[in-house]
Computed example of a mutant assay.
Amino acid sequence: MGNSVAYPVLRTADPAEAYEKARHLCALLATRYAQVYVGAELRTVADVRRMAGLLPDAIYDHAEIRRDPVTGAYVYFGLDVRTASDAELAAEVPLDFVREELPDGVRDEDFVRAVGAGPASVRWEGCWPDEPELGSFPSPKYDGVQLVLNSDHCEWDRGVPGVHTLYVHVTKHGDPGRAERLAAAIGGAVLGEPEQG
């Protein structure tokens, strides 16, 4: 998506509502690309097990930098999430991952249901309609919809359990008029300042 401008258009405690509104916004894209980008921070063994059942081939790593206490070298996560024991995983959490495409047979709604209390993101990209009469033009590199679970920031680096935020991404320069129209289409409003996406 590049460095788009992201406008928050909905905040809710209900992830199902946030997902439903995200899908409504996706339907408003003139073109939607097939890829769905996902990422999550997994804070418990149960979180890891749920996500590994869905995305066993994702590249999991420690959510926080770890170093060997003797050598100071970085310590990377090296376990197979499918076969590691609960005790082994408990010593490694929190873990995170980013995946650029959901595999065949995995739906974005399955991912949303699998997210635990850690921050997570689902991103759909495409192009908004051409609206020259309103001064809004599509931006294929930057347009899209993002659902951020358990966070109030589009980079989903701040965990806020139970707060789910929906963003619309528009151009790298921003388009507040389009953001307001998209927010109104889901019964929402632009909530505060735009963020860099």
Rank of each mutant, 00 (worst) to 15 (best):
L191G: 06
P140T: 06
V98K: 09
D143I: 01
E92Q: 11
Y167H: 06
L166E: 03
Y142V: 01
A90S: 07
E125N: 15
S136T: 04
Q196N: 13
P132Y: 10
D108P: 08
E133L: 08
A183D: 05
P129W: 03
L147D: 09
E100K: 08
E155P: 02
G174S: 13
T165Q: 02
G126C: 09
D130G: 03
G105N: 04
L149K: 11
F137R: 08
Q146A: 15
G126Q: 09
D108W: 06
A189M: 07
V93K: 04
I186V: 12
K141D: 14
A189P: 00
V160C: 04
V160P: 02
E193K: 04
A117G: 14
E125P: 03
S139C: 14
L149A: 04
G192P: 01
R123V: 14
D96I: 00
A179L: 07
V145R: 03
P176N: 07
A183P: 02
P161T: 10
K141N: 13
V112M: 13
Y142I: 00
G126I: 03
C154F: 11
D152T: 11
E101R: 15
V98R: 12
E131P: 00
E193S: 05
E193D: 12
E92M: 11
E155G: 13
D175E: 14
S136A: 06
W128I: 00
E155H: 14
A185M: 05
P94F: 12
R123H: 12
G144V: 03
E100F: 12
R158M: 12
A114G: 11
L182W: 05
V148A: 09
Q196H: 13
E101Y: 08
V148I: 11
T165S: 15
A185F: 06
E92V: 00
A87T: 05
E100D: 11
C127N: 13
L149H: 06
A185E: 08
V160W: 10
V160D: 07
K172N: 15
V122L: 14
A189V: 07
G105W: 09
E109Y: 07
F111K: 02
